[in-house]
Amino acid sequence: MARLVTLYSLQWGDLSLEEVCVKAKAFGYDGLELGLPDHLDVRQTDPAYYKGIKDLLEKYGMQLRTISSHLVGQAVCDKIDERHKSILPDYIWGDGDPEGVRRRAAEELILTARAARVLGVDTVVGFTGSPIWHLLYSFPPVPQSTIDKGYQDFATRFAPILDEFEKLGVRFALEVHPTEIAFDTFSAQRALEALDHHPAFGFNYDPSHLGYQGVDYVDFIYQFPDRIFHVHMKDAYWSDTPKQVGVFGGHVPFGDPRRFWNFRSVGRGKIKFEEIIRALNAIGYQGPLSIEWEDSAMDREHGARESCEYTKRLDFQVSGHAFDAFFAK
């Protein structure tokens, strides 16, 4: 049986959840990945609220396997500044005191795990933020002890959150991504080690964030076969020739043609999704393939529809026997 193809609702936050359901069904999706805070309020305690969401999804034949808290999760470990005010709910930002913001974001993540449990979902995707991302380029030289302290700070802040996740039977899948504590294979391994391989911690695999960095995004799957908790299908294009703006993205917006790389609709960039599907089959991943659509140069409805069609056409299940098995007759 093919994997579910779902649509991440965060990029559709200007629409009501019912409007997203209507569109997703028309585009051919099997379900949704609900994005916070636009399409789910985890502060709600009334069971009727969650029943209403489940009933709405069922009405349109949308399955739910994942909820996501990227924006709030970003604030748990980040160096907080005015940028965060634009992405956080007012009740998380509060007076903007950095430690208060981090504390409220951590509390919200725990509420997110509780909401997931009520909804019958076992995976929360999100960001962690990072206290050391700003030190990525090591000049002035950054002592290794400073990087070590950054991972220690991450573990101190996130381990209690993960303990609560584990109690609830819910997993946290960090989207490996620039600005997070894990942004490539090496830093993902360090994050796991910092948490002493906490059973509730794994990864949301999104190849678009690895490819343009020069990271082997297929090998990443084989490095963490038991920690790929969820998969985003998102493409990226990077230039074969020098551009005005390099791999760091400069100070120009996403979609600017002067950039070395940009996100693309699935199948229109350089990510080799065929190899990804084969690798996911090899590790036995049976979770959703969730479309996180972020192509600045394309109409989102066109992109969402063709991304669903492309992914369903590409996905296939592993063979039940070797092709040459009949020779044994």
Rank of each mutant, 00 (worst) to 15 (best):
R83G: 12
R227M: 08
T6K: 02
E18V: 07
I221S: 03
S239L: 09
H209N: 10
L280I: 09
H177T: 07
E166P: 04
L71N: 04
G255L: 07
Y50C: 05
T241Q: 06
L119V: 07
A113Y: 00
Q44G: 01
A105W: 02
L195V: 14
C77R: 01
Q213E: 12
Y8G: 00
A279G: 10
D90K: 11
S296I: 07
S68W: 07
G31R: 02
R103V: 10
A2K: 14
T128K: 03
F127R: 03
V318E: 13
I161E: 11
E301D: 14
S130C: 12
G129P: 03
G35N: 07
K54Y: 06
C21Q: 01
K149F: 15
G129C: 11
V252A: 00
K270W: 02
L119E: 04
K85H: 14
P225R: 13
F263I: 01
G126E: 02
D240V: 05
L135I: 10
S319N: 13
D41H: 09
Q44S: 07
P131E: 00
L10I: 11
W133F: 15
G13Y: 02
T45D: 10
E18M: 08
L119N: 05
K272R: 14
L4K: 13
Y212W: 04
L64N: 02
E166V: 11
D299C: 01
L162Q: 08
V266G: 03
P199Y: 12
R65G: 09
M233G: 06
V20M: 01
Q63G: 10
D184I: 07
D216Y: 01
F316V: 12
E274N: 14
H84F: 15
K270N: 09
G13T: 03
F273A: 02
S265V: 13
I221C: 00
S208A: 15
A24I: 00
R300T: 08
E292T: 00
W293E: 15
M1Y: 03
Y310K: 08
G320R: 03
R259V: 06
R300K: 12
A191E: 10
V76H: 05
Q317L: 14
D196S: 15
Q317E: 15
C308E: 11
E309L: 13
A75N: 06
P160V: 04
P131N: 07
R258G: 07
V266N: 06
D78W: 08
Y237L: 13
A115K: 10
G150R: 05
D163P: 06
S296T: 11
K329M: 13
V101P: 00
K79M: 12
G269T: 09
K234I: 09
F327Y: 13
W133S: 13
R313I: 05
L168P: 08
G320I: 05
D184G: 05
I92N: 04
L64T: 06
S265C: 14
V247A: 14
I67Y: 05
M1V: 11
G250T: 05
V218G: 05
P143S: 11
H39T: 01
P89S: 06
A24N: 01
L280E: 05
K23T: 01
E274L: 02
I132Q: 03
P253I: 08
A297G: 12
